[in-house]
Design a binder for these strands. Structure first.
Lengths: 223, 223
DNA sequence: ATATCGCAAATCGTACATGATTTGTCCAAG
DNA sequence: CTTGGACAAATCATGTACGATTTGCGATAT
């Protein structure tokens, strides 16, 4: 038999594709907060039937990205600014732990990659580019715990970041004075990792870093 | 119109009921780890059709309780002891935070309820009843952050505890020497809450408490 | 003993029927 | 002429039955 690249779409059930499609459209803002997900409409639009779409919506429901009401339908979740603050605080604890257990596993080369990302954040800071800054910030933190031995923790982090990305669509959150301090704290954190500091110390630093972001946002919004 | 209590089963779609049924059966061990969830079979057994069951399985998939493979089916997730340790560590961080933000909101009466639960744990300890002890332990911690203002955090805690309960089916985890220290730490924690201690201090205590449990388990299993 | 063919079982997807909710219209009262 | 309510029709979520496709296993033939 020919062993050439077959047209085998191994990862391509309609339910799976629909899930990724809807998810990406929610996260990139195509379906904003409160948007109503109508099955028949989506079915015609995407060319699949309603059943795979229903299954996709169910997964999104457990992900917390949509809210489903019986006999009414599904809407993409809507968040207010206090929930942004809550999510930041939860992320602080999760990230602190993840960063701490991954720190000993990081090679010097990987630390260097993270450091370069932080340098690019400084550039974005110089050029007043909040969007790029935010994206790089996420990239920076994920670079710290990419090789986390706990897969479920990784899934949690991914999920919380996704929620956060989506929330930024409703309430734009960028505290001007905070960005400069943020990159400094990143440098400090990298220093601790390179110095093979104690796990508890690294965890404290990483947690405090994001708690500070949440606090800055708190002061900026609910003055 | 009569406004008396109608027989309105507001929460009663077949998809919802199927979800709760499957979930409870997974958590109480009826469907053990690795159990194969066959749609047609479940459909005949429960009297509903396959579609509501599919939706239920999708939600369980995002909950991390079942694993779905394309064209193969769904199996109940199987965990090993290291994942128990991971989950305990994640729970430690989440519980620490939740306990800290709920502490100022607790009334003396609520503290008293928690204290009574801890007293019952001491009784279970005297009578060598690990099962009751474990159940009470969960009840104790939930009593501390029942009125959490962050609903999503509550959902996360519920989810992680559910995972833990299910894991205990595979690997029975009870470290004899740990239980006595545990109730002492509970008393200490309650003292901090009553004394209106600093949030950071309470968080540290609650986190350290569960980290110690994880560490004890680590020593007991992978000696 | 190995390989190939074929059957059984279960998942995946579609079309259709049903029931609940919302909307829109018409009529009547003020 | 405006307002309020009731009835009707459309819209959409929910559930069922059925067909299509894939996987896994066993039997048969070489």
């Amino acid at each position: 038999m020919s062993m050439g690249a077959r047209k085998k779409p191994v990862e391509g059930s309609k339910a799976e594709l629909s899930y990724e499609l809807l998810r990406s459209r929610i996260l990139d803002g195509t379906y904003g907060p409160g948007y109503r997900l109508v099955m028949d409409q989506l079915a015609r639009e995407t060319g699949v039937s309603t059943i795979p779409l229903r299954e996709a919506v169910r997964r999104l429901q457990s992900d917390g990205l949509v809210e489903v009401v019986r006999n009414i339908g599904a809407r993409v979740a809507v968040f207010d600014s206090v929930q942004v603050e809550h999510t930041l605080n939860v992320l602080a604890r999760l990230e602190g732990y993840a960063t701490a257990i991954c720190a000993p596993r990081m090679s010097p080369a990987q630390v260097q990659v993270s450091r370069e990302i932080n340098e690019r954040m400084k550039e974005a800071l110089e050029e007043f580019d909040p969007t790029a800054f935010t994206a790089l910030n996420r990239e920076f933190h994920f670079s710290l715990y990419r090789h986390c031995p706990d897969e479920h923790l990784n899934a949690l982090l991914e999920s919380e970041w996704a929620r956060l990305d989506h929330m930024r669509r409703s309430t734009f959150t960028y505290v001007p004075g905070r960005a400069r301090r943020s990159v400094e704290e990143h440098d400090h954190l990298l220093g601790l990792i390179e110095a093979k500091a104690d796990a508890a110390e690294i965890e404290d630093a990483a947690r405090a870093h994001k708690i500070a972001t949440a606090a800055a946002l708190h002061r900026a919004t609910a003055h």
